[in-house]
Amino acid sequence: MKNTHEGRVALVTGAAKGIGQEICIRLAERGATVVLVDLEDPAETASLIGGNPLRLTGDVSNAESWVQFARLTDERYGRADIVVNNAGIYPFAEIDDLTYEIWSKTLRVNLDAHFYSAKSFVPLMRRNQWGRFVNTSSNSIGTPLAGLSHYMAAKMGVIGFVRGLANDLAKDKITVNAILPAITKTPGTSGMPDEMIRTVWEQQAIKRFAEPSDIVGPILFLTSDDATFVTGQAIVADGGMYKVS
């Protein structure tokens, strides 16, 4: 395994399971020191990685949580190089059932958290004039799925934020990109109706459910030195479902 991330400190949100857990494992395999963040203690992920990684619990939709994440990361490692904003929620609700609370919480977790991460971690990255943000959007923004207007609004916002922030931070040698995954086989999607799963597969060129490992490859690239000249981009990893027009 290549040590493409040797010496880097990477913070990953939603680290306890699913795609986040896979990101943590693969970054650690590539030599990164990984900071695990989740609402619940990501103890299982820590045990899979080994080496007593820093485990932080907190709500990513709370700005003060991010202040704490940055402070504790700095105290433990003296640096931060990579932030992968993976945590997200996707409650289904068509407009008649879409409450103000669901709307607000969906945007706080899926969009506001990305802003908070930048405010807290850009200063740490600037010390070494090197940094990588990978923010999770979604291929759903280009699909005809019902009941996700609030989620799509947040995920479109992620792309806008990524493109603007990339301009702000280019002078600091910090890149900012978005990953747009397909609906992926994780604990969070385990309750999806079979009919919805079949609908997803029918629209993909690759006719199978995405695995977490399918999403991690592009993230490993975007957080490496190989992606030095890639910033402000939205990389789709969905088996050929979302067609750009």
Rank of each mutant, 00 (worst) to 15 (best):
A205E: 13
A182Q: 13
G232I: 04
I174P: 07
A227P: 07
T175V: 00
D172G: 02
V162P: 08
E211W: 02
R55G: 14
N135D: 13
S137P: 12
P42F: 04
M1Y: 05
E22F: 02
G20P: 08
V236Q: 04
T199Q: 10
I206A: 11
D214M: 04
T45S: 10
A178G: 05
C24R: 04
Y90L: 10
T143S: 12
K173G: 03
V122Y: 05
T199R: 04
S245F: 03
M152L: 09
N128L: 09
N135A: 14
T136G: 10
V176E: 06
A237M: 02
G14Q: 03
R127D: 13
R163A: 11
R71F: 06
R26G: 07
S138R: 08
K173R: 10
N167S: 12
V12K: 00
R108H: 12
D81C: 01
R126A: 15
Q203T: 15
K243N: 05
S149G: 11
G191R: 09
I219H: 03
G142H: 11
I235S: 00
S245E: 08
I82N: 03
K185F: 09
I141K: 11
I183E: 10
A70D: 11
L148D: 12
T189E: 14
I23H: 05
G217D: 12
Q203M: 15
V12C: 01
M241S: 08
N86L: 06
P193R: 11
A146E: 13
A16C: 05
G7T: 01
G147H: 07
D38M: 09
G14M: 01
V83A: 03
N85E: 09
N62R: 07
D225V: 00
N62W: 04
F121H: 07
S117A: 15
A210P: 11
T57E: 06
V37S: 07
K185A: 15
I183V: 15
D41R: 09
G18Y: 04
R127S: 14
V9E: 00
G232W: 01
G160L: 03
N135S: 15
Q233E: 11
K105L: 13
I197K: 13
K105M: 13
I23Q: 05
D59N: 11
Q68V: 10
P212M: 10
R55N: 13
D59Y: 01
G50V: 07
L27H: 07
Q68W: 05
F69W: 02
V109E: 10
D226T: 02
A234Y: 00
R30Q: 14
W130L: 09
I102P: 09
V9L: 00
S47C: 10
S65C: 11
A166N: 07
G240L: 00
P187C: 14
N86Y: 06
T136F: 13
M1L: 09
A237N: 01
A146W: 05
V122N: 04
Q21E: 12
N85P: 07
G164F: 08
D172N: 09
T99C: 11
E6K: 02
D96Y: 01
